[in-house]
Computed example of a mutant assay.
Amino acid sequence: MNVLLVYAHPEPTSLNGTLKAFTVEHLQRAGHTVQVSDLHAMQWKAQIDADDHPGRDPSVPFHASLDSRDAFRTGRQSADIAAEQEKLRWADAVILQFPLWWFSMPAILKGWVDRVYAYGFAYGVGEHSDQHWGDRYGEGAMSGKRAMLVVTTGGWESHYGPRGINGPIDDVLFPIQHGILFYPGFDVLPAHVIYRSSRIDEASLPGVLEGLGARLDGLASDPVIAYRRQNGGDYLIPALSLRPELAEGEAGLGVHLAL
């Protein structure tokens, strides 16, 4: 497989740096081809702005989505955006690796999504009708590709358990897994979460790496999260609400799983 690792941590000697190096070596040893987008090393520009559309008319007010659409359509995107899009086209699987900071991904990784997921590339594609509301949530440019999060967090696993104070980890990561990965068509594997990251030492690190290695070995074959496809018949269009006879009487994020 071709695997793209998008990595967001500023310190190469950190636990995340160790996990990144292990991931690349482990995948390559298994015969996969790996590219790494190390966002801090690349000095990735996080903010989306008019500079992302070289040659645009400066007299026209900047509009993030419309400028993104026009730049993508005309082939006038900034070079760093186009290069990351080409990596996504190349990849069979994508791993986003990051520390969980304030219940989300670091700003530099969110900026990668904001800029690389251009209008016409990752969203705003497909017909809109009474039967089909765009190619998204199970369809789109990333269809047929797999994706997985590798996340470190300082909190205990129980803090992110079903009754944990931080909320269930699947709910915390839902906007990323369902909204950023499943939306443009990725088949999303359950996240690999490493808890109590600050407590990992030389004695516990081998076990952590062994667990990560097992997940990497299943990148091509492990079952993916059974999200409901938007255009598969489970949702009313154009309301995009789950049909009332499905998960009857239930609400919340879990209803979007086809169990």
Results as ranks from 00 to 15, higher is better:
145 K>G: 01
130 D>Q: 11
212 L>H: 08
184 P>C: 07
41 A>G: 07
69 R>S: 08
55 G>P: 00
8 A>G: 01
74 T>Q: 10
149 L>M: 14
121 F>W: 04
135 D>L: 04
102 W>T: 05
24 V>S: 13
194 I>K: 12
68 S>C: 07
34 V>S: 06
60 V>T: 09
220 A>W: 12
111 G>R: 00
22 F>S: 10
131 Q>S: 15
37 S>C: 12
216 L>D: 09
66 L>D: 15
28 Q>P: 02
240 L>G: 11
100 L>T: 04
95 I>D: 03
96 L>M: 14
20 K>F: 00
185 G>Y: 03
161 G>W: 06
232 G>A: 14
104 S>R: 03
213 G>P: 08
241 S>H: 15
35 Q>G: 00
32 H>W: 01
211 G>D: 04
76 R>L: 01
64 A>F: 08
88 L>E: 10
107 A>I: 05
216 L>G: 02
67 D>A: 07
102 W>Q: 05
85 Q>N: 11
173 L>V: 06
250 E>P: 15
141 A>K: 10
243 R>Q: 13
150 V>R: 05
45 K>Q: 15
113 V>S: 07
223 P>L: 09
180 I>K: 13
100 L>G: 08
64 A>W: 05
258 A>K: 12
245 E>L: 07
183 Y>C: 02
127 E>M: 10
166 N>M: 07
174 F>P: 11
80 D>I: 05
71 A>M: 05
241 S>R: 15
98 F>A: 09
226 A>F: 14
85 Q>V: 06
50 A>Y: 08
17 G>S: 02
229 R>K: 13
74 T>F: 03
78 S>E: 01
229 R>T: 13
59 S>N: 14
76 R>E: 08
16 N>G: 02
138 G>Q: 01
253 L>E: 11
151 V>F: 10
172 V>W: 01
128 H>D: 14
238 P>F: 11
248 E>Q: 13
138 G>A: 06
58 P>Q: 10
215 R>E: 14
28 Q>K: 13
16 N>M: 00
68 S>L: 11
183 Y>W: 05
73 R>F: 05
34 V>F: 06
153 T>Q: 04
141 A>N: 12
5 L>Y: 04
55 G>C: 00
142 M>D: 12
256 H>R: 11
168 P>N: 01
6 V>G: 08
124 G>H: 04
164 G>C: 07
37 S>L: 02
102 W>D: 05
180 I>T: 13
257 L>R: 02
101 W>K: 00
35 Q>S: 11
82 A>V: 07
82 A>T: 01
113 V>K: 03
26 H>Q: 15
106 P>K: 01
57 D>I: 08
185 G>Q: 02
54 P>H: 05
160 Y>W: 03
53 H>N: 03
58 P>A: 13
228 R>F: 11
31 G>T: 07
20 K>S: 11
163 R>V: 09
224 V>G: 09
146 R>P: 08
40 H>F: 11
38 D>K: 15
122 A>E: 05
144 G>L: 03
66 L>F: 15
157 E>G: 06
248 E>N: 14
195 Y>P: 04
243 R>G: 05
155 G>I: 03
52 D>V: 02
49 D>E: 10
150 V>D: 14
79 A>P: 03
126 G>E: 00
247 A>R: 10
128 H>S: 12
18 T>H: 09
20 K>W: 01
219 L>M: 04
